[in-house]
Design a protein around this nucleic acid. Structure first.
Lengths: 258, 258
DNA sequence: CTTGACATTGACCTCGCGTCAGGGTTGCAA
DNA sequence: TTGCAACCCTGACGCGAGGTCAATGTCAAG
């Protein structure tokens, strides 16, 4: 007897589901086979061959519509297509490796969400003794900056790290960090504003004297300092007041916050 | 100014689409941010952090429903989950490599659709001089056999290859291959039936004398011969007639085809 | 003051099947 | 003989993760 396969036997043998085979029939990917006297589909050897090809291609990620096109292609065309698919699989492997890296990066703090040089700078801040809240505020500022103007980040980071090499700047920075929780009328704010302005002007002169190649480097010293309180100014009345005091002392050489 | 991001800026910076972000809002994966005066969504730094985490996990294949669960998990739980996801990715790589093998197998004939020993046997047939049509018919028979009773394939293949070591069997087999196109009344069919029956009986005796450990080995010699024309009998009147003649000569020791 | 890029909501489309409903068929054991 | 479990049939709806289209509102710049 010409023993033919039922849909279940075919599915089982080829490692697909019955439902998948019927789906392939509906979309015209696999031809409908003969039916037996009670309407059951009966499959011959060619169906096994076809289905194996379909399954391998589908597992490789080829869309069904494209598979039906491939099955009716001549061997040369088919070989070329297979080569292309194989290349796509190789690239997929590379992608997955990359995703593994990213995934493991999730376990390691802010690296993923910030350029590495900024992450390093934040670590410098922590080592200097900046409060965790202060570091967080800096981080948020840099995240937004990186989203809005990624091109300025490397330059600004360099400037900031250069400033942090200066002991006086570090002291001022830590003072700002502490000042966040002060009363806006605290008398120490005036002294801190004086110190800030003094450091800024001497630093600005030094920068101009040192090199004139990077033309906007001297206002950047200011901007770097401002970045520090750009965000926190909205959550800290004391730092808000402090910024105002600095602006008074600098006249309109620093433009007002809009 | 507390510069916040529009949905497009956020999407761009994080490498996702605007539509995806809105989708995450709908399914509660990412909290809806504040709106500006004209109803636009405005995102802060935390949204960037959240979205990056979502994207990395989603790219790693984690379902969104599970991601929302993960984002509110404690670090230990999160670390364990990440380890699990990473393992899944590693297995995915192995799978893809396997699929590459299968894919390349498509270019190399029947290996994928048949156990290797059967494929080798088919190559033996080609070398002996069997017509391409004859090989195809054999192949189709073995495909169906492998689908219906895979467990008998290794044994039957061994039997067949053993028979093919016999010069007389090879001659008979080639004669069958030629006879496929004969007229069913061709007088040569009788002679061929005689030869078949004679070979079968002597071979059967020899097999019984040689070893009695594999109990059903002597009827199998018959079955192996029958397999050869099991399929072709339906497409070749001459082979059909030939099978009938063999049955006459063997009496009812071979059961009738139902 | 218009133009083009961007934002809003909402409804339907895609792919590759899974799942359920509501039946008919087959084969084997009690 | 009669279960009854295990198949098979068609047809319709569901899902995940967004994409696409429509109709409308808003922003920035020449």
């Amino acid at each position: 007897m010409a023993k033919l396969l039922t849909i279940g036997q075919l599915a089982n043998h080829c490692g697909v589901t019955v439902r998948a085979i019927r789906h392939y029939h509906r979309v015209g990917l696999l031809p409908e086979p003969v039916r037996d006297h009670s309407g059951y589909r009966r499959y011959g050897a060619q169906a096994v061959v076809d289905l194996v090809r379909i399954k391998v291609l589908a597992d490789a990620g080829v869309p069904l519509a494209q598979i039906s096109h491939l099955l009716s292609a001549d061997p040369d065309e088919f070989g070329a297509a297979v080569a292309g698919i194989d290349e796509a699989l190789q690239q997929q492997i590379i992608q997955v490796e990359h995703r593994r890296q990213q995934l493991l990066g999730l376990l390691a703090g802010d690296q993923l969400v910030l350029p590495s040089e900024v992450a390093e700078m934040l670590n410098d801040l922590r080592e200097i003794g900046v409060s965790e809240q202060g570091v967080q505020i800096e981080r948020d500022g840099w995240i937004l900056l990186a989203a809005l103007s990624p091109e300025v980040v490397p330059e600004w980071t360099m400037q900031k790290r250069a400033a942090l090499d200066d002991a006086e700047f570090r002291r001022i920075y830590l003072a700002y960090d502490n000042a966040r929780d002060w009363d806006p009328n605290d008398p120490r704010l005036k002294a801190l504003a004086d110190r800030t302005v003094q450091w800024t002007t001497t630093r600005s002169d030094a920068a101009i004297g040192a090199r004139s190649d990077t033309s906007p480097s001297d206002p950047n010293v200011m901007l770097v300092a401002q970045l520090m309180d750009a965000e926190s100014a909205y959550t800290s009345p004391a730092l808000n007041r402090l910024a105002e005091l600095c602006r008074e002392r600098l006249g309109r050489s620093a433009r007002p916050a809009s």
